[in-house]
Design a protein around this nucleic acid. Structure first.
Lengths: 211, 211
DNA sequence: CTCCTTTTTAAAGTATACCTTAATAATTAT
DNA sequence: ATAATTATTAAGGTATACTTTAAAAAGGAG
């Protein structure tokens, strides 16, 4: 298993999470390689029994298991980097990307223990091994990019959060469009019923959406 | 800078620390590649201004700086793995080996800060950036005579040696007295906390001590 | 100063993961 | 249904870091 294969598995997983068409071209775009390169790599992954390929490319059971392992490592590192080393939201992904590939199963387990088995990474994504009965389908406002439209379908039951949402007059089932993403602090500007509202990074991961 | 180049720089540094002849053959042996491969790689490193090559291969200033940076990363990770994740002495090197190559300068600094700027890694090797005026060399247990007392302050990163030390329960910073020296096979009997332990000749040269 | 061993270089080949260019196949639009 | 677009495969090439085998160079022993 090489770093590269791991990156391909992750991107297949992520594209299907976003309900995007998972084909060689989209994978190529996401990984910033040519379609030819991704096509070639996918053939290898197919031969190794990690992906199925009909119309849509999907992960096999074995492939999914490996992907979740990698994502767990990634998310544990993000948790560590933010909680213990004071990394900021915007810089953590890049570093976790490097570390995940250098993480043995033993290190993963020990780090998990050290972090006290977190159920979610700082971006709100679930950490599989610690959330046996949750599914990774819930998307939060964190996953949104400029131009995306979404509907707010659920918020966590945090009183302060609810007060905050009241104060900016954002309600459940509101439809909105992302008009700006601030890469410094991770906040989003959204447009709801013609009105622009600011959502801080902290709030984003509490807002469950439908796209 | 690739992982491989980093490994070559480290091995050049380590061989010269041990006062061994630093040539393409010894490097090849240490890295478990053929002399041809190492010879080829050394040519690249020479062209990149990282090593000098006369009789003995040495690091240039630039090469030394890079090597110390890598060793710092390695030793910080060892410290973290042992102090916070409960890794054992013998298994920590392998994991730090992987992590060091995935460590940005920023991560190095933050980890250093988190660990409170340790002067030495758990093996006793200095962490350069935190010990401006120390030198990375000392006496080994080979220099000891009967009656000498000493403190074990550093051991070489040999996996078998580390397992051996784990097995006889000899730890870093243990104080001991030499109670016998076997002139036939060069082994030493030492007394640590009232217990007699045998150190074979082969082990002695790997044990750095303070007298 | 030869002989012999060790060391280095040269030549050609392997695997991985890319690339470009060009051809084929499959969608989508008119 | 045909044209246009998009996706995939095929063919040949690049770079890195190895490999083997063989030749050349350098050192050490008698």
């Amino acid at each position: 298993m090489t770093n590269n294969r791991e990156d391909y598995l992750k991107i297949i997983y992520k594209l299907s999470q976003k309900n995007k068409v998972v084909n060689s071209s989209n994978i190529a775009k996401a990984l910033n390689v040519t379609p030819t390169s991704s096509s070639e790599m996918l053939k290898k992954l197919r031969n190794e029994g990690l992906v199925n390929q009909d119309k849509n490319i999907t992960l096999t059971d074995k492939g999914l298991e490996m992907t979740q392992d990698i994502l767990t490592k990634h998310r544990l590192w993000e948790t560590f980097l933010i909680q213990y080393l004071g990394f900021s939201w915007s810089e953590v992904d890049e570093q976790a990307e490097l570390l995940e590939h250098a993480t043995s199963d033993k290190l993963k387990e020990r780090l998990n223990e050290f972090l006290n088995f977190p159920k979610h990474c700082p971006h709100g994504s679930i950490i599989f091994e610690n959330t046996k009965n949750e599914i990774d389908t819930t998307k939060t406002a964190l996953d949104l990019e400029v131009g995306d439209s979404a509907k707010l379908i659920k918020v966590s039951q945090d009183k302060d959060l609810l007060l905050y949402l009241d104060s900016i007059n954002l309600k459940l089932n509101d439809d909105f469009v992302v008009v700006n993403k601030n890469n410094f602090d991770g906040s989003l500007s959204i447009k709801v019923n013609g009105e622009i509202k600011e959502l801080s990074f902290k709030a984003l991961k509490e807002l469950v959406i439908l796209t």
